[in-house]
Amino acid sequence: MEVVVAILAILILALIFGGVLGFAAVRFKVDENSLVEQINNILPQTQCGQCGYPGCRPYAEAIAGEEAEINRCPPGGEATIQELADLLGVEAIPLDAEHGEEKDTPLVAYIREDECIGCTKCIQACPVDAILGAAKKMHTVIVSECTGCDLCVEPCPVDCIDMIPVAQTPQTWVWKKPRGTGDISIEQIPTSPTATNKIPVSNVL
């Protein structure tokens, strides 16, 4: 009799918990797409295709499907790899050099307009529609929309597209990080006010 009671009790408990778990599985279902979405949000959206996929979203899908490593995005660089590693709970790995190197300064495409023959090839190549122009008319880049992905340079038959660094303005300028401790050896610590000369007067006046 006791055995029956025990089995019944366990059975009832199993049913209750099964029900709760089943409800939770339906109610709080983790959408596979939301993972793709999260990965896609981390990626820099340059749409450059350097990862080997035709855009950031396909790469995000590949990562979510565990088809691709997380270290194939040169524009995102180490920061993106770190974020992806945090999100996916995997080890951060160094950037795969096969897919390119991380650039220090953001670039933007520039069309030398007097040399443009109006072939529209760059327009077709641009993944974010940042090039304006028409057949046999001069083309130009919308600087604010250009992601600096490089994809327009290759198709240009007259080689009139340059990748130039984005000009800095006081609004985009950022203070440098201080050097921090440890850079200075004990010999370099000034003992008199003349030991270091940070701003030479000759430069000032």
Partner: peptide, 11 residues
């Protein structure tokens, strides 16, 4: 990035 994502998707 958000803007380019949108532009890419629209394209």
């Amino acid at each position: 990035a958000e803007a380019s994502r949108q532009r890419f998707e629209n394209r």
